[in-house]
Design a protein around this nucleic acid. Structure first.
Lengths: 183, 183
DNA sequence: GTCTATATTTTGATAGAC
DNA sequence: GTCTATCAAAATATAGAC
């Protein structure tokens, strides 16, 4: 891996684990093994590195979701497969967590990939819900748009309750509740 | 108000607006109007002040929820009143936001009030749901415990989507969806 | 109890050697 | 492209005057 890639990867990890403020040049340097000034050769500064790291995390998030939603099976099975895929609830969502970081949301460039990612996920889920409704797997009187939003929101709310309680249990309950809603 | 109260209040505001790391002694001093060393007379340090501030925010959260849940009306009306009360979606939840702040969750003393608050809210909602079920206002086949958890989670997930999109719309949609779920 | 002065460490960034 | 040296400012905290 190139030094630039190691810098971005370290920034991604630090953003997820410790937030934007704690993603200091020093912390990035130590984790990546790059020299102190090396970050400033590849990036204009901390915010610039964070922007690249967030975009890469958002892309990874979408790729992972896509992988689960593209598994073989009926539309409803694929939605359920995505919802039930194992997640580390206490680590939080690599994207959702950033939306509650004030320093990130205040910077339009850092916030935009978060907005795009959730919009994308809702659109993908909506498409599958409509397919499932066409096959009578999901009740047709439910609004596909609203249902897709509700699924994303249950996952994100589940992370919040899990962090609050220091336990993955509320998250797993929420996911099972969401799955049962679909049936 | 005493200097100590102004310090705590400033800390509460800064935690909500900018997070734990940005709640620096200097920022607290400037907002509260207290002198530079004054914080250290009343508190052992930043973490100690934050602990008091978080407990006070948690108490305020519970008092406000209690007020809405205690309005006159049927149990279902009171739940709906709480859900529909106006909130500033883009400012985020003063408690839920803290659960996504890594520096806070890692400190058991700072996390505990967050856990207690959500547990308390779920318990209160569960009680009202059971009352509503006894009156046939809510379908009795729904599990009161799960439904209470789902309501808390929809609110918290709504804040996440609102922050991501920079708009209160997803939050308001989510709340309306949760209200319609109850009918 | 409150203030000013000060100290130490970290942050975010630059300069310039190699 | 990478490294070390260095810097100004901020974060966190203490000392001691008043």
């Amino acid at each position: 891996m190139t030094t630039r890639d190691r810098l971005v990867e370290s920034a991604q990890e630090l953003l997820w684990e410790r937030g934007y403020v704690s993603m200091s040049p020093k912390a990035v340097q130590e984790r990546s093994g790059a020299g102190q000034g090396s970050m400033y050769h590849h990036f204009k500064g901390k915010a610039d590195l964070a922007a690249v790291a967030i975009e890469r995390s958002a892309a990874a998030f979408r790729e992972s979701a896509q992988k689960w939603l593209d598994q073989p099976g009926t539309p409803l099975e694929r939605i359920q497969g995505y919802l039930l895929r194992s997640r580390d609830a206490l680590k939080g969502c690599q994207i959702g967590k950033l939306t509650q970081d004030p320093q990130i949301v205040l910077d339009a460039q850092l916030r935009q990939p978060l907005e795009d990612t959730f919009k994308w996920l809702q659109l993908r889920l909506k498409g599958l819900i409509k397919e499932a409704q066409a096959m009578k797997e999901i009740a047709t009187q439910l609004d596909a748009d609203e249902l897709a939003a509700m699924l994303v929101l249950v996952i994100q709310g589940g992370y919040v309750l899990a962090s609050a309680s220091g336990s993955a249990k509320p998250f797993n309950q929420a996911i099972r509740g969401a799955v049962s809603l679909l049936r």
